[in-house]
Design a protein around this nucleic acid. Sequence first.
DNA 1: GGCTGTCATCTTAGTACTAAGATTATAGCG
DNA 2: CGCTATAATCTTAGTACTAAGATGACAGCC
Lengths: 168, 168
Amino acid sequence: MTATATVPQTPKRPTPEPATATALKLFVVLARAQQAISERVEGSLVSHGLTHTEFAILEALYHKGPLLLGEVQRKILVSSGGITFLVDKLANRGLVERRLCPSDRRARYAALTRKGEALMAQIFPAHADAIREAMAGLSRAEQKQATALLKQLGLAASAASPESAKRG
Amino acid sequence: MTATATVPQTPKRPTPEPATATALKLFVVLARAQQAISERVEGSLVSHGLTHTEFAILEALYHKGPLLLGEVQRKILVSSGGITFLVDKLANRGLVERRLCPSDRRARYAALTRKGEALMAQIFPAHADAIREAMAGLSRAEQKQATALLKQLGLAASAASPESAKRG
DNA sequence: GGCTGTCATCTTAGTACTAAGATTATAGCG
DNA sequence: CGCTATAATCTTAGTACTAAGATGACAGCC
């Protein structure tokens, strides 16, 4: 690890074309906003010993009821190995259980246990509040506007990308 | 691992209050859009054997010139251990080098090597193109609108959150 | 019924990064 | 000058998840 003494200077780089510069700017701002929001909201999950992804699983089951592991996987966008790992962890904590599927012996449903239901009933309202507060930098109308723009953006980006469909 | 046979059913959950529902929706859409965009853009980095974070370091150095490790860290929002780890990796690949700081014997500058400069000159235009294409779901005006909204959102979320300032 | 391609989940090895802490150096005060 | 609090970077142990692959089951065709 050789370190060299020098004085730093800002380099000259080619200026991007305006349409590209606009896209680059949005890219950076989008990533920053998402990170800031996530960190803000994740704070309320840490105190319950839950990662963002674990919570996402609990939330999906809470609102949708029992789901096949593959359905959960596709809903929260994790790998197949990841869903096994995460459901194992939640099952070990007694929050989730696996159930047989009557029509397909390969498949398994993940479902909240009573303990998991109780936990979600307790923490989901606070989580929703944390999200509401995190979004308070925008008015309700602005939030709807942002939602419409981002939905359009996300759908277009997903539609043209094979990566979004491949996860496992 | 006990699995129980059952028929899945959708549960009844309390309906969130409208302002909260709007915020929840934006939260989901924001995360989805960010993930779709990231996956789309990261595809072009993988072929060069670079992770998103590695590339972010290279890009920061490419545009700003040599930076103290702590400056890089704060710019790309990683932990202090992370910056050491990542700069080590990039240095081992000959893309980045550490340089002494004349005024502070604790500090180190990270700087692109000639090899790193050449790589960035090669791949940054393609990366910028990938971003432009990923954002093509929105018109230029819509991109600017989204940028303004997200900037406001991100700044407000960061300002009220101590987590964004703590990264060590 | 047998066969083949595909699917659902699990297993395994690996990695990108974090949190906590250690070490050395600096800044500021008395 | 000495002391103390703080700062910059590195070290270490750990973890959340991925990619690749394995295993058993299902669907559809002949």
